[in-house]
Design a binder for these strands. Structure first.
Lengths: 213, 213, 213, 213
DNA sequence: GATGAATGAGACTTCATTCAT
DNA sequence: GATGAATGAAGTCTCATTCAT
């Protein structure tokens, strides 16, 4: 099915912002990639910054909702962590452009927009912090410096968006599983019995980001 | 001692490129930060891109040299990995602006400059790959997908530049030690006996990046 | 009828390039003369150099075509020379700005553009050389050094663009006739019987450069 | 013998102004060609325009003086014309850069400087006009439109500076003789008996412009 | 005598955006 | 819904020139 002009604009923006940065992407680049004139762009967006904000918000919103849904019924910290890592990795591998824009272009936002975006990001990171704290409190995670560990984990997982290619040899679910294993190892936690939690995360991710298996 | 104008220019560039990106930094911003007129900038640099390339090359050169010096006398893979992680983390925490520029602005380079910079980066990453391969071959590292593990490790360690602040609670050497521990855990490798290797790396890093203890 | 903006730009450029030289003409001068903003200029041209190239090419193209058309049915060297001089003089008097730009600003072109423009000019001069050679071979021209004579002739005729003013006392066709006479004298050739050949040239010139009689 | 710095500056200016035009030549180009720093240039000149004026004035002064000296003892119009053409051609072939600067860069002068330079040029052209008038009055020149003929002659002779190369096949004095012949033909005047007048001009030219025979 | 450092002004060009059609 | 035309502001970079050393 053919794409809406609006969708073409959005996708062009995501691709270009990811590849060349917000300031490195001109309105003319966007127009060319979306195959309309640069004046017509303004039927489908507000300012260039509005377009950026929109992209970031949608990306973070979806990630946040997916995380909450995934974790809703999970209780044990290792399982929750495994699920969150799985979800995060799949999200970043499935839409690397969107997530790189979110990660790299925050500085391009005006003060007001930045506040909102950073707020969403902080909400999401609080989930990670919560899981680590629970695990440490429960004695199942060994993390002398939980804040450091959290950041190390997040950077490791987020980094997937910087290198993952769907044309690589490793299927996405196996990649995610590998990352979950690495995460648990970092916390000195044995792998959970089954992969119920991770399985849950895979389901959600597959649906939310329309990953074809 | 007062700074040379050239040094002021360089530092302004590093700070601004890191904070607002290459394309987000104007020549006027640079001039203002270096406290000279924008015309005077051009006594101390070629083009804006030349300045960027210079920054990147020096940063990568130093890292590469430091890594080679550090690893020169080390043999066992766990020690080598511990040393490399220590060095990498200290370098990225000591000069987060420089390393973020290297990591984020490669896309802003022209084709020719990009080739050179990416060449240096690849050389450096080959050192990591070598160590992982040795460890796996020697049976001391458990890494089903060495390439994935390498990338996970690198992203985790490089990420330090994105959040580390010298005003944080954790001294730099302890931070590095924590990361070395995380790295070895990720590879299912017990911590090495003494910390000879890491100590070696700390020495080199302290000297190369003039870290005050 | 009112002029197109594009035409206004072109005419402003011709006038200014002729009067002040390519490098002596600023983009602001052009914009002011064309009565648009300097940013708007760039809807009607590529770079300033593109504009120059365009002017040169069109001028040379027209001259070349007109020369070929004029000479198509002429055989005897004196007649051919008379026609070519007539055409050349009328062209240079009718559009002195264009031709002065062609003559004076070749050095301002980049290498690639220069090659093309000089190619056209050489093609045109080859026509002159051919006529001289024919006349000498036929014994009707006395030109001990044909190359020198050709250059003397060309400079003499091209020079018209440097001083001719339509407000002068001599009608254009009489000026051209005078030049044809001078040219034939230089070659020791008696004036041709009628002025069929020159008449032919006058027709073509009048049409091509829209000269009002 | 080595050149004075001042001479190097002057020659660099002449060469560059001729090749790239006054506005196309930067102060840095001049400095580089003269092998000094651009700041040092200002020990040897006033402004860039002063340098241009100096070059033009000296060139025109010398030409004017040489013409007056040459014509001092000559009486018959054909001889005078032959001498003047010879002188003019030799001057333009001997120092093509200087004369091209005089011819092409008048528009680059400020109003005051332009007045002076054009004054000199007019003085010189008046000499040509005088000779033509005398010849026509004496019935030895056939020039229905003396003004047109004068301009045609001048453009033809001046044009030498635009193409002459000392590496060409024709010795300078033979070139000049050829031009004198062309000029007289244009005026319907038979070649003068001996070449006394032209010989006189050759002497003067050889001395004034230091032409090696 | 020579120059590195410095700069205000201005070079050409592109920017994001608006608006009449 | 679409766009050619238009522009003020800003982009990077070079200009001719001065001056302290």
């Amino acid at each position: 099915m053919a794409l809406t002009t609006e969708q073409r604009v959005r996708r062009a923006a995501v691709k270009l912002f990811a590849a060349k940065g917000f300031h490195g992407t001109g309105i003319r680049d966007l127009a060319q990639a979306a195959k309309i004139s640069s004046a017509s762009l303004y039927h489908y967006m507000g300012t260039k910054e509005d377009l950026l904000v929109e992209i970031m918000r949608e990306c973070l919103d979806r990630l946040l909702l997916a995380a909450r849904e995934t974790l809703a019924d999970l209780d044990d910290p290792p399982g929750r962590l495994s699920a969150l890592v799985t979800l995060h990795v799949m999200a970043h591998a499935a839409q690397p452009d969107e997530t790189r824009v979110v990660d790299n272009e925050v500085a391009a936002l005006s003060r007001a927009a930045r506040r909102r975006v950073v707020g969403l990001r902080d909400e999401y990171e609080a989930i990670w912090a919560g899981i680590l704290d629970e695990g440490v409190a429960a004695g199942v995670f060994d993390a002398p410096e939980p804040a450091v560990t959290r950041l190390a984990l997040l950077e490791m997982c987020t980094g997937v968006a910087r290198w993952y290619s769907p044309r690589g040899p490793l299927p996405l679910d196996r990649l995610a599983a590998r990352y979950a294993q690495l995460a648990l190892r970092m916390l000195g936690s044995p792998a959970p019995d089954g992969d119920t939690a991770a399985g849950r995360a895979r389901e959600v991710a597959t649906r939310v980001w329309r990953i074809r298996p």
